[in-house]
Design a protein around this nucleic acid. Sequence first.
DNA 1: GCGACAG
DNA 2: ATCTTGTCGC
Length: 237
Amino acid sequence: MKVRELHRWDISREEALEIQRKLAKHLIFQPDFDIKDVKLVAGIDVAFLADKSIASIVVMSFPELEVVEKEIAVVKTNFPYIPGLLAFREAPPIIECAKRIKSEPDVLLIDGQGIAHPRRFGIACHIGILLDKPSIGCAKSWLLGERQGYPPLPPIPKEKGAIVPLSDGKDIVAVALRSAPGKPPIFISCGHKIDLETAIEIVRKTIKDGQRLPAPLLSAHNLATASKKGGQGTLFI
DNA sequence: GCGACAG
DNA sequence: ATCTTGTCGC
Ligand SMILES: [Mg+2]
């Protein structure tokens, strides 16, 4: 995959906020593709070991969900975890990993929020802009807490497949999906070049029975985690 | 100063 | 996210 170099990464917290507000204006929430033409879906996640970040990308065929390509990249961690600025910690290793992927995924599934974000620019939006591809934010928890006017999360029905729209002010920015019974819901939001309906459909069709996360994302997570095994300070590659 | 707060 | 063994349940 080709990566667009839109800004530096050795920046301050203030500069990071400016970058998010600037890039958010370029987001597109209208797919320029038909879901029938989606052939490849990629899952993207990052794991950490000491001062290293291990990014992982697993590309699967759609809708068969067979692994077509997988890759990892190890990079020194250069930014702390700050709620709302996750991309500045995880995007660098993801970019390096994306450069090593030879195939061209049609859609990206990213571990984290899309527009369900204080500045409507979560990591899924950021990665979508950088790679210029449709992207979906698929998070395991909610970011917009009960602070500046954000309402508490509504109850999510326990029935498998239940969906609850989640708003930020007047806009529906995500949905909570009970992807697996007896497990917490996942939160789906638009990243870039896609709409919520299409995002939901792709997420649903990539989740295997009994699993909470989409297969490409689960595999990417497992690959990243497995890549740092072999000892308490060893990278297994 | 304290609480909230993706991963 | 990470630090961590065994244990309960399907
Ligand atoms: Mg993650």
